[in-house]
Amino acid sequence: MLTKRIIPCLDIKNGRTVKGVRFEDIRDAGDPVELAALYAKQGADELVFLDITATNEKRKTLVELVREVARYIDIPFTVGGGISAVEDVEVLLQNGADKVSVNSSAIHRPELITELASRFGSQCVTVAIDTKSTPEGWKVFSKAGTMDTGLWAMDWAKEVVERGAGEILLTSMSNDGTKNGFALDITGEISRNVIVPVIASGGAGNAQHFLDVFEAGADAALAASIFHFQEVPLPGLKQFLAENKIDIRI
């Protein structure tokens, strides 16, 4: 059986992990490769590297990082953050990234999704959608959640798939950071209505939250701080999910 995926997300700035990772068993918690290797060993199914570097050196340091991750890590990984052109993607894939994720650039210019899919194949094009619950329903926000795009989350999800996305990374800004659980309703609704896998993101606080979101229909679940701070250790999480009849790779 195809298993549900657990995906730790590492925020990267100038080639280093941010968010004060606390780990006793690694020497340099700021080293993305060392942290990635630990997660791979603990049973992470994939990894996401989200680059938040804002400098002109961004592209160079990111490519160097991708190359080092691909050299040492033997599980798939996705790279996202500020990717807006076919050339950006080409160099990342050539250096060993398996997938890229695009977000604001796809909202700004939706043709980008089709360009990437026809050039590299849908399997390496993840579209990240940031959504917030509003009184009218779930809407898409850009610019780190500050700008209402006027798009409905469900409509945009269907459109990105029609344009060639191979996967959706759905982050609920309403749940992100709360540790009260994933947004089950919109995650389930989108997952049931698109033909591609959906990664749920935002709100994970404990193992039960992962079980809830998989039962709601997510194909994968992503989290950051609860893994970095070892609040929900990966091996125990996967064991818990397996005991609760979720198909999971142990």
Binding site: M1, L2, T3, K4, R5, D45, S122, Q123, G166, E167, I195, V196, P197, D219, A220, R249
Partner: peptide
Amino acid sequence: DAAIKVPHMGWNN
């Protein structure tokens, strides 16, 4: 089959 999600993406036995 069109009834299942594609790509078939992830870890399988």
